[in-house]
Design a protein around this nucleic acid. Structure first.
Lengths: 223, 223
DNA sequence: CTGCCTTCTATGCATCTTGCAAATTAGATA
DNA sequence: TATCTAATTTGCAAGATGCATAGAAGGCAG
């Protein structure tokens, strides 16, 4: 290979599996000799980029159903890595964590407000900060930035919820991603006015108080 | 190379050079045997992705100064292409068009409203629709979608203006990208309230009517 | 069965933002 | 100096948002 000519590259894929658990943004990471790494691997011959992301998500994070979206591509010396975010609904992390002892749960702590951007921190459920492999904190930061930007005008938030959900659960998702508390009546009005929500007529069960109505996401043309 | 194993890929770069000319979104494309193609080329050894985009922009589009931002990566059979958008200020397309007869100017026509997304059309200054190479209309559509989404909360709009500009010029940029007419007093208020603009005290020259104040973009921390 | 507790849901209102129209200002030009 | 055009400012109506309050609907204890 010439030092400054056209070259071949290995193409890697990296996936950020995110979910909302108990009102906080959670990431599924692999424990790898002290450091924690995001699920990743090589793009194989014949695969699409997104297909590879889905495969890696299934193989390494044991997740079969997720909304996957491309984030950003990074060039290194002889390789290029394409990062994807995978939004996992409801309790989708529970099974993988039970199956595989290599996987760990991290809480994403965003140390900046609004759309400022920058790296984030990841803590264990116990509260200690986890060591991340080089560059992972920045990728996670990009992920949070992207989600914050798209939350309001796109349907990404619904990818983090089961098919039927209450307005309170939807608000919890928004509050976790944005990192701020939202006003309940105002949030409810805004969401209903967007026309994205369809009331199912069913109610939430198991609550020891007035049950909330269950809604369904109905994507509109143009979002 | 195994049919389904790890493989090496050629990495290509594609650049979308955009500018605002006479209130419309303009793209600089290369005429290539009937079809029109966006400037592109291979990532060379030792280059960063963005460095390659800048080099291709200089070599093929003859543009030296531009705000460059990564858009999206596409995987094909044995290659991966990373697309960049390059925002060129003011009359930055004039010199390249004079120097190189391979380059052509296209007006970007967005056939969808708001954030709906989809491919766009490109017309010559004369008004005839130009034939684009496969996939280029989708990349241009992604570009417009990205710009529309970021225009309001980021400084991308200022990359399309010279260092000093009037509020009317800024509004022209916004109207061209968003594809809608904006209310003048409301736009002025909104922009000034963001705190991004610094009045220079100077006035525009050459107008046969009241000259507008020239402003400068002053990025704030957190944008 | 009744009262209590919690949360969902709806409503009213002050505040802020935005859209629109009209008035005013400032330079060039005849 | 009068006239012209567009910049800039101002006022107000309409809409969106934040906040507090009131009513509704379940489970649960007595």
């Amino acid at each position: 290979m010439a030092s400054h000519g056209q070259a071949d590259y290995a193409v890697g894929i990296k996936v950020v599996p995110l979910s909302i658990i108990d009102g906080v943004v959670a990431v599924l990471i692999a424990a790898d000799d002290g450091r924690h790494v995001l699920p990743g691997g090589a793009l194989l011959a014949g695969e699409t980029l997104e297909g590879a992301a889905q495969r890696i998500l299934a193989d390494e994070a044991r997740i079969d159903a997720a909304y996957v979206e491309q984030l950003y591509s990074f060039g290194e010396q002889h390789s290029v890595t394409v990062a994807y975010v995978a939004l996992v609904a409801g309790q989708g992390f529970a099974a993988p964590l039970k199956i595989s002892s290599d996987l760990a749960l991290g809480e994403v702590i965003v140390p900046w407000a609004g759309e400022a951007g920058g790296p984030v921190e990841v803590c264990s459920p116990g509260g200690e900060q986890l060591a991340l492999a080089a560059g992972e904190a920045e990728i996670l930061g990009q992920t949070m930035l992207r989600l914050r930007g798209k939350l309001d005008y796109s349907g990404v938030g619904f990818a983090l919820l089961p098919e039927r959900f209450t307005l309170r659960e939807l608000q919890d998702v928004h509050e976790a991603i944005l990192g701020v508390r939202l006003n309940k009546p105002a949030f409810r009005r805004r969401m209903l006015d967007k026309g994205w929500l369809e009331a199912t007529g069913e109610r939430e069960t198991g609550a020891s108080f007035r049950p909330a109505e269950l809604y369904r996401y109905r994507p509109t043309k143009g979002a």
